[in-house]
Design a protein around this nucleic acid. Sequence first.
DNA 1: TTAAGTGTTGCTCT
DNA 2: AAGAGCAACACTTA
Length: 267
Amino acid sequence: MPELPDVEIFRRRLEAHARGRAISAVHILDKRLLDAVSAARLSCILEDSRVVSTARHGKHLFVELDNGSLLVLHFGMTGEILTLGRGAGTPRYTALRLAFNDGSGVAITSRRRLGHIALAKDASAFIRSHELGPDALDPTLDIQAFQAALGSPRSAIKSALMDQSKLAGIGNIYSDEILFQAGLGPTVRVGDLNYEQRNRLFQTMRRVLKEAVERGVLSEGTTAALPGDWLLGHRAKGERCPHCGTAVQASKVAGRSCYFCPSCQVD
DNA sequence: TTAAGTGTTGCTCT
DNA sequence: AAGAGCAACACTTA
């Protein structure tokens, strides 16, 4: 689930609920998500610190603390951030729970334990060392930078969009949605796009990601809050294209399940 | 009941 | 050297 829009929603949730608050207690319930940091050290650093700000790059969430440390969160396939009211219990699959001095708190959960919890010096060093490309919604990203980010002309456009070292934030779901709305087949080669198609892909990418964030996709379960003419709610076998009614086609691209409309999306 | 599938990533092998 | 295949994991669906 957590791609750029989802992580941005988590960030806003954290920003609204945790910013300026002091962490009074730290509960680490699953050490397996910790990346190169011991539970003891993480607890020690988090406890009594205050959340100064939050930031996001692609699918990574950064939490800046007033002691100079930076908490880095990645949600894998099933992670979430939940806010907890006073006296709330610990949600199922919680890996890390932070309690604030007013009794409220947040829980970082991970059902499949594929995420990561780490500490870093600063965000830009982390982004560099993890070889992440520019954030897909970086306001300074222009069409030239976008084209450069797509990289090798021979790679399938869906693979290029999902490659975090080229462009950070887009995963399997949103790559399908973006390509559907841009009218491009998933296996179109990057080098075969003309300028008009590249520009349309770029504009569509930004519009789709922004709209998904603004609609708060996660707040209503999965897809209920999305426009009915998006592919996302029809991304399954036996579904029909919301534009033309053609049967949605399922395939595999770069080892990932892929859904598209063979009629609306050109090759 | 068992097996296959899954919104991620990173490693190995070609 | 880019791409396929698989492992990590735990749960859901067929």
